[in-house]
Amino acid sequence: MKNIYFSEEHELFRESLRGFLQKEVVPNIDTWEETGTIDRSIWTKMGDMGYFGLASPEEYGGLDLDIFYTVIFLEELQRINSGGFAAAMWAHAYLAMTHLKAEGTSAIKEKYLPASISGELIGCLCITEPFGGSDVAGMRSTAVRSGEHYILNGSKTFITNGVYSDYLIVAAKTDPEKGNKGLSIFIVDRDTPGISATKLDKLGWRASDTGEIAFTDVKIPVDNLMGEENKGFSYIMQHFALERLIMGVNAHARAEYALDYTLGYMAERTAFGKTIDKFQALRHTVAEMASEIEMVKSFNYSIANNLNSGDYVVKEASMSKLLSTKIADEVIYKCLQMLGGYGYMEDYPLARMFRDSRLGPIGGGTSEILKEIIAKMVIDKKEYKPAAN
């Protein structure tokens, strides 16, 4: 069936990106998975190819392309079987840079955006805290105004690119008494005194540098405020829709890759005189998995199309992440089972995919939190609205 969302230009881009990743990234993945460090050179190579500027304005060196180029970017990153490498790339381009584009002043954009697009600078987004998790409103970090600076104190955790990035987009309370209405966003250079980071040892996503970051009396120039003071919560909520859709697209793409790989294995593996793709029990399991993947993929494409048209898709994106990550976990679990003992071996891709996929229902808002958000919209008729301009 022809997909209505992808043109010939989209598919040429997919082919080019897939070739680039196979040549420049795949040969290094095992090393980066072992060391937890991605070579700096690949960031500039990705930048040179324009991959960090797909959704950025042309005036800053971006390509300003429609969202389905981003969808292709995310899908192809999942096919190289390193959730950590993929996360490092999209957390830079679609978490840190999204806030840069949306809330950065002209001066901030001129300083950071072209260098982010080129891969010269790497960004990270610092929201989650050790005691907060998905409770953004319960944030404890503070940024107190003192003359021409804010003094930032607090800590963040589970931050992708949190150790090796060059700048940090940081959320902190500028008016703690107002709760979530007293939250602001800042951009902070990594070399600012008072910042320290510790790399976390993770079950999966091992190629990426996930960090815990401490801020001790960090002086931030007033000009580094992103958007309006005390409007940070609405900015964060507004961009969560994109992050959740990204997680949903990642999930359907890795599930699809897992099934494709498993089908190739089943076509060659023999038992009792025939290939295992001829056994009815396994064939029917494949039929269920393929149907579920196709269902959430089509749903995700429709959400992406609506987002591209300017719709506020917080409900649909939350549903996407909830269902897509659940289905991906179940598909990869079943695919690993079909490989038998080989599925448990690190020489085969399913072991790493199994670990990497498990973060899907956790990161970017846990499934439990998403269920309550969806319930509020469906049952309580709560309306989430974009931040006022």
Results as ranks from 00 to 15, higher is better:
2 K>R: 15
11 E>L: 15
17 L>P: 00
20 F>L: 14
33 E>Y: 04
34 E>N: 07
35 T>L: 09
36 G>S: 02
41 S>W: 05
47 G>H: 03
55 A>R: 12
63 L>A: 13
64 D>G: 03
71 V>S: 03
73 F>H: 12
77 L>D: 03
89 M>W: 06
92 H>I: 10
102 A>M: 10
103 E>Y: 14
104 G>H: 04
107 A>R: 14
109 K>H: 07
109 K>D: 03
110 E>V: 09
117 I>Q: 10
120 E>A: 13
123 G>P: 01
124 C>S: 14
127 I>L: 12
132 G>K: 02
133 G>C: 01
134 S>Q: 00
139 M>D: 01
148 E>V: 09
149 H>T: 12
156 K>F: 02
160 T>E: 02
166 D>M: 02
167 Y>Q: 11
171 A>G: 10
185 I>R: 10
186 F>D: 01
189 D>L: 08
192 T>N: 04
203 L>Y: 03
203 L>A: 06
204 G>A: 04
207 A>L: 09
212 E>K: 14
212 E>C: 07
215 F>N: 02
215 F>V: 05
216 T>W: 00
223 D>N: 15
224 N>S: 15
225 L>Q: 02
231 K>V: 11
232 G>K: 05
234 S>A: 15
234 S>E: 11
236 I>W: 08
240 F>T: 11
250 N>C: 14
251 A>I: 02
255 A>P: 04
261 Y>H: 11
262 T>N: 11
263 L>P: 05
264 G>L: 02
280 Q>R: 12
283 R>Y: 06
286 V>T: 13
287 A>M: 07
290 A>C: 05
296 V>D: 06
306 N>C: 13
311 D>E: 13
321 K>T: 01
321 K>L: 04
322 L>W: 00
323 L>I: 03
323 L>A: 10
337 Q>I: 06
337 Q>E: 10
346 E>R: 12
353 M>W: 03
358 R>E: 00
374 I>V: 13
375 A>K: 14
387 A>K: 12
388 A>R: 14
389 N>A: 12
